[in-house]
Design a protein around this nucleic acid. Sequence first.
DNA 1: CGCCAGGGCCTCA
DNA 2: TGAGGCCATGGC
Length: 233
Amino acid sequence: MIQQIYDILLEKYGPQGWWPYTPKGKTKPHYIKKNWTLKKTRFQRFEIMMGAILAQNTAWKNVSKAMINLKNNGIHSPEDVLACPQLGLAKIIRATGYFNKKSIYLKNFAQFIHENPIEELQLLPLAELRKKILSVKGIGKETADSIILYALQKEIFVIDAYTKRIFSRIGICKDNTKYDHLQTLITGSLEKDFRIYNEFHALLVEHAKRYCRKKPLCRRCILKDMCKSSNQF
DNA sequence: CGCCAGGGCCTCA
DNA sequence: TGAGGCCATGGC
């Protein structure tokens, strides 16, 4: 069933090109399709990590504005973040909302990367890596997993509010399902490949935005045949 | 206008 | 350990 959902969404929407980051020579984040063999620089990986923090409960359009602002202010590295006064940083990321909190979170995380360079993190076993990242104040499970999957390109599946909504409506899990439980469920049904985890999560977000909204558009939903809730709306 | 967005922390039972 | 309050801008 879960594999089938992935196949349908990919067939319908196509590759999503996640996570957006700024290509060489460009000035703002782009979705880059078929980038599996493209080697990301350490700055691009850090950019994705900052984006994951700024995207917490925030529309991507606002995150993109903040990313452009960061770049225009010369903030590319963990050391740049650490050198920037917190109030200044908050002003730069204003458009994402929660800017006072997020500016602190960014600094916490920048300090963490400063002490644990990306090249070293990539050598750690997955469980240890996740635990270390989760120890940073401001990084919860979803943000940690987004960082691991999209910036470090390791095999971990990201669960977000959209994923819970879609899978609980279909009937695969309960609406109050726990993060780790749903993650295990999905991971156990898919080939262990970071490219598939990458694509599936992005496809779920796209599907939730288009049809499986808070007020869902079940009439034209391509998953309605397998969804136990489709007749309730 | 009101609603909501690619969450996480803190507090208090 | 779980529910509830809080953080906050900008697009639609």
